[in-house]
Computed example of a mutant assay.
Amino acid sequence: MTRPLSVVLCATLLLAACAAPAPESPLAQRIANATPAATVTARGETAPVGTPNADAADDPAIWRNAADPGQSLIVGTDKKAGLYVYGLDGKTRDFLDAGRVNNVDLRDGVGIAGQSGILVAASDRNDLAHAKLALFRLDPATAKLSALGKVDAGRGEAYGVCLYRAASATYAFVVLKDGTVNQVALDMSDATPRGSIVRTLKLGSQAEGCAVDDRTGMAYVAEEDVGLWRFDARAGGSATPARIAAADGRNLVMDAEGVAIAPMGEKDGYVLVSSQGDNAYVAYRLSDHSYAGRFRVVDGAIGGSEETDGIDLMLGDFGPDYPGGLFVAQDGHNATAAQNFKLVAWDDIVRALGLAR
């Protein structure tokens, strides 16, 4: 029996509607709009943090053992519980119950109570109204952390932290959640550390990730919904920020999160930023702040990384798996396990982006 044309048209339209793809997810739309990214895979990963079913792992810091690169260490935060120390095999070497510590950084060769040591600093959020800087010593022989004490870091919620070793002093930049950045001069001469805020910098909205280039005295801070900024890190320097890159949805997709530096020569190298909004990482040249490329850490023998908060990067020999340097990224979706950190060879990133060595 011949059907009326109106029935045929309705049936055709219904079938077409059923066959139409579902609207793209917000993540798929952000990826589609962003500049294309190269891909790399992780060569290692850490054990998951101890806080399950939560946004818990946050920020890593790398210590390189120059005498025995394979024995290098990674310090990572569980921002609901404390600090972990991992070996390059990803196994947990230590855990210190430090409460709500959000970001972490470290410097080797710092004078601590008259002896040279590895200083670890974490932004302490145990009191949301009063920021603290929690300080620790890392023992490279035992991979153990010991608490040194806390110093005041201003009024507000401590969020990000990065250390700066100048010629005559060691400083910590403590980034408060509202975009305030307090520069704290550290006095580690006694068993009990002391600190004083020497100046205050300001961004307009929520900020967190930061890193300082000790060679040039420049501090880089990510304002999450706005972009990447540069400050003069010197205590007497200008407090006016210069914007390096905008979170424009193309090269850098908000939220802009972790920041890390790859120093090369006297002034050259790259600054890397976590482009959390599209699960990518962006590299900018330090020489002129031009865009150098972007990449993602995708699934391979080891899972990739997504929704990354903190990152760290250190160049140099880390053994046969990471001969040119090590990049560590927090993974916000670690399959069915708790969050962890992924380990990527810097050489793989260099090849993927065609960067200068």
Results as ranks from 00 to 15, higher is better:
T2P: 03
P4A: 09
V8H: 09
A11V: 06
T12V: 14
L15R: 12
C18G: 14
P26G: 13
P26Y: 12
R30A: 09
A34G: 04
E45M: 10
V49A: 03
D59G: 00
I62E: 03
D68I: 12
V75H: 07
V75R: 11
T77R: 00
D94R: 09
L96T: 13
N102L: 01
N102V: 01
D105F: 03
V110T: 02
G111D: 07
I112S: 02
S116K: 10
L119D: 05
L119Y: 01
V120Q: 03
A129C: 07
K132Y: 14
L138C: 01
D139W: 01
D139G: 02
A147E: 15
V151Q: 07
R155C: 02
G156V: 02
G160R: 04
C162S: 03
A166R: 08
A166Y: 06
V174W: 00
D178K: 07
V181P: 00
N182V: 04
Q183N: 08
D187M: 12
M188P: 08
D190N: 06
V198Q: 00
T200V: 08
T200K: 00
Q206D: 11
A207D: 03
A211C: 05
A211P: 04
Y220Q: 09
E223N: 04
E224T: 08
A239L: 07
T240E: 13
T240I: 13
G249T: 09
M254C: 08
D255F: 10
E257T: 08
V259Q: 06
A260N: 05
E266A: 13
V271R: 13
Q276I: 11
Q276V: 06
Q276N: 11
A280C: 10
Y281H: 11
A283M: 11
Y284W: 09
Y284T: 14
R285K: 15
S287N: 11
D288I: 03
V298F: 06
G300Y: 04
G303Y: 12
T308L: 12
D309E: 14
D309H: 10
D312A: 12
F318P: 01
L326W: 03
G332E: 03
H333G: 13
A337G: 11
Q339I: 14
F341L: 09
K342D: 02
L343Q: 09
R351G: 06
G354Y: 05
L355C: 06
R357F: 15
